[in-house]
Amino acid sequence: MKRVYVNEKWCLGCHLCEYNCAFANSGVDDMVKALKGKTIAPRIRVEESDSINFAVSCRHCDNPLCVKGCISGALSIQDGVISIDSDKCVGCYTCVLSCPYGCISTSEAGAVQKCELCTKNADGIPQCVAGCPNNAIVFEER
């Protein structure tokens, strides 16, 4: 299965992936309208230090501990993609506690958010990867 993989040595720390993610998941057509003046809550996040940066998003694990611990059945495996049904999620954060990579983000709305490889918005073409200027994240089979 294709997943998002990180080449940390090429990451510029530009945060474009975060913006593209927030835009792709906003349901709004216009990037400025979608993001201007808002605190964005992207499903991919860049970790930074003086010498190294890299973007972290869901690994779509073969053994998804988030799914196994979810108390409501909101998280599930759909053809290998770890998906969330926001309508069923009660915001208990057991998945935040379970994910070894810190890839579930909380949101004011109550339901948690996670990368679903753009299966619900951009025809399964992850927009973080599409917009990365330096191939620091790639979407491929490994």
């Binding site: 993989y5 940390e8 073969d62 070894p100 990579y101 490994r142």
Partner: peptide, 10 residues
């Protein structure tokens, strides 16, 4: 270890 986490399938 980071490469294992972020550049390999799990």
């Amino acid at each position: 270890e980071r490469a294992k986490k972020l550049a390999q399938p799990h």
